[in-house]
Simulated scan of single mutants.
Amino acid sequence: MKKISIMIPTYNEEENVEPLSEAIINVFETELVDYDYEILFIDNDSHDQTRDKLEGLCRGNHKIKAIFNAKNFGQFNSPYYGMCQTSGDCTICMCADFQDPVDMIPKFVDEWEKGYKIVCGIKTTSKENKIMYFLRSCYYKLIRKMSDVEQIEHFTGFGLYDQSFIDTLRNLKDPTPFLRGIVAELGAKRKDIPYEQAKRRAGKTSNNWYSLYDAAMLSFTSYTKIGLRLATIFGFICSGISLVVALVYFVLKLLYWDQFPAGTAPILIGMFVIGSIQIFFIGLVGEYILNINSRMMNRPLVIEEKRINFEDDDKKENECS
């Protein structure tokens, strides 16, 4: 009997973990009766009753597992690490707030049985804030045009991943993994399935402008070269313009030294313009350096505080760390 792993990252989801686990179990008991399953929750240091709820679920069902992180390791490391800890023939990654529809699970499995190694859920519409959806759409189109790797628009990580791809993730040893980019770059035999993203069932999202910026910069600095290329090109152009202006000013000063005004306004304006361009690109180059620094430190993705119901496969504890 094939085993399907459902991996769910959590952070302050006390109102959602119990109904979500019930909905998933119901899918396996009614539509996927020929498959075994495990549900793995990986909690990123919640401060509400999420962990108490998860411990109760694990006591009631041995197929429900939980990993408690020692602290919050971010929105990318924790899910990636959780995927590496699954033991199924395939792994389905979904969020805990019901924005990823549970009824998509049988559709993913059906495409997987047809031979696809990765099945991605693609948001074609969303009930989230329309402004946010528009901004996300602009970002996806922008990064897709600039990236050397063809990026997947409106893909959040919700989807099914064959065990062979999970093994690839385990072997990457990437300390700053960006799953969406990795799927686009390394994923083979991929099938995209459209769906409508629902509203959050309960609780408050942990996403904010800073976390969205962090995600955008990780994607930008991991899969594009255009930032550094623009810095080089603009630097070359500005240097050339500055040299020409300096030479012209010097020649005019020599020829018409008694008539040529000695005002400093043009010089100051040029300094401010060139200085602002330099500051912008220094910040952009800094983002690339920050990304390189994170990878060079090669720190573990997460540090576990506790894991529950892993008695049969503790060997995975040190993998993908």
Rank of each mutant, 00 (worst) to 15 (best):
E13V: 03
E304K: 06
K71A: 10
M217W: 08
I105H: 06
I122L: 06
H62A: 12
D89Y: 15
I279W: 13
K225Q: 12
G240Y: 07
Q151G: 04
N61W: 05
G227A: 10
K145M: 10
P261Y: 11
L218R: 14
A202P: 00
D43S: 07
D36S: 11
Q49H: 09
C84S: 11
P175K: 02
I308K: 12
P79T: 13
M271K: 05
S137K: 02
I131Y: 00
N69C: 12
G159S: 07
S147M: 12
G270I: 02
L135Q: 10
T125P: 05
T205C: 14
F272W: 08
F234P: 00
S126M: 06
K199P: 13
I267T: 06
A96Q: 09
T264F: 04
I303R: 14
W112M: 04
K315P: 00
K123L: 00
N318M: 04
D34L: 03
G74C: 06
I42T: 02
Y210L: 15
C58A: 13
D258R: 14
G240A: 15
E29R: 11
E128T: 03
P101K: 02
P19D: 03
Y195Q: 07
N12A: 08
I25P: 00
T156R: 01
I8V: 09
P9C: 08
D97M: 02
I92E: 00
F41V: 03
D103N: 09
F165L: 15
F73P: 00
K63Q: 15
G181R: 03
Y11V: 11
I303D: 15
A246E: 04
I4V: 07
Y210K: 14
L169Y: 01
M104C: 06
L268F: 06
G203K: 05
A246M: 12
P19E: 05
K145D: 09
V273T: 12
E196V: 07
F28T: 13
F98I: 01
K173E: 04
A265N: 05
K53Q: 06
L228I: 10
A188G: 13
Q259H: 12
T10K: 01
I292C: 05
K71R: 10
A188I: 10
K71T: 03
Y213T: 15
S5F: 10
A246Q: 06
T91D: 00
M296G: 12
Y213I: 14
R201S: 09
Y116T: 12
E113T: 08
G270E: 01
W209T: 04
N12P: 14
I226F: 00
E319I: 13
V33P: 01
N291M: 08
D100W: 00
D313R: 15
T224W: 05
N129E: 08
I166W: 00
S222K: 15
M132R: 13
C95Q: 11
I269F: 06
Q163N: 15
L268I: 05
S78Y: 11
K145R: 14
A96V: 06
C120T: 14
F260E: 13
